[in-house]
């Protein structure tokens, strides 16, 4: 049986790893945690680079392995070896294709319109200091939650949805879209204080350093009282089937 050239091994391992980073993470995380968490393309790029370096390292630590690795490539390129017409043709094709592909990529990236800035939903900001020690003064009673529900449907549901799924009547106009409280990646990752801050100060209350408000969330301070805000928060967690992160 003929041995598979090690350069082919290297390529196969790299392709498998790349596929796993790019496509495999979503089903895996879904199977493990219930919510798919695909890797962002920047991370895929980084991991694939690390994989390439690791593979090259593996082959280059021992001289014989390295030679085995390089040999087929060198054979392919070396003019001196007695070439069959088929080999000669394929070598020519490879030698032309590599610069052509590089030129094509260059043309595409130079003439493409860049993507507009993307506005990720603002759950990654640090809670301002003055909100850290604020606590929910109200008990999680049925009555408070019910009052919160009435306030929620009157004030919040038009965007965040009567089903707390971020699909309210006006949600389609939201850019970024209103948060879906049923999604495990929103309020379930946050504690009540964070929600209190976001409701009270809205989009304009987000840190200004990044020059951009990333949210159309209104400022509810002055429209809703603190007690009303806490009741709404308790309703949001309860009816969306979530719990605050620190409770």
């Amino acid at each position: 049986m003929k041995r598979v050239p090690s350069v082919l091994w290297a390529l196969l391992v790299f392709a498998a790893l790349y596929l796993f980073f790019d496509r495999g993470m979503a089903p895996l995380t879904k199977a493990l945690t219930g919510t798919p968490a695909p890797l962002p393309s920047s991370l895929v790029f980084m991991y694939a680079g690390m994989a390439a370096v690791a593979i090259l390292l593996y082959f280059s630590v021992r001289e014989d392995r390295w030679n085995n690795f390089l040999q087929p490539v060198l054979d392919f390129l070396r003019v001196a070896a007695p070439p069959s017409p088929a080999k000669r043709l394929s070598r020519m094709a490879v030698l032309i294709l590599i610069p052509a592909a590089l030129g094509w990529r260059t043309y595409l990236s130079a003439s493409a319109t860049p993507d507009p800035p993307s506005d990720p939903p603002g759950i990654h900001f640090n809670l301002p200091n003055q909100y850290v020690s604020v606590g929910n003064p109200l008990p999680w009673t049925e009555q408070n939650i019910r009052e919160g529900g009435i306030l929620y449907t009157a004030n919040c549901a038009m965007c965040h949805g009567d089903a707390q799924d971020g699909e309210g009547l006006f949600a389609r106009a939201g850019q970024p879209k209103p948060a879906n409280f049923r999604d495990g990646g929103t309020i379930a990752q946050l504690d009540e204080n964070y929600l209190y801050w976001r409701i009270k100060e809205g989009g304009p209350g987000l840190p200004q350093g990044s020059i951009e408000y990333r949210s159309a969330m209104p400022v509810w301070d002055g429209v809703l009282t603190d007690d009303q805000i806490w009741k709404i928060i308790m309703f949001e967690y309860t009816n969306a089937g979530q719990k605050p992160a620190k409770r």
């Binding site: 060198l74 390129l77 070396r78 003019v79 030698l95 590599i98 610069p99 052509a100 590089l102 030129g103 094509w104 260059t106 043309y107 130079a110 003439s111």
Partner: peptide, 23 residues
């Protein structure tokens, strides 16, 4: 974009020729 693409292709061609010559 055309000029850039041409420059990259030429560069790659030169590298290839150098490798071949070296081999």
């Amino acid at each position: 974009p055309w000029l850039l693409a041409l420059a990259y292709m030429l560069g790659a061609g030169v590298v290839e020729l150098w490798v071949l010559a070296k081999l």
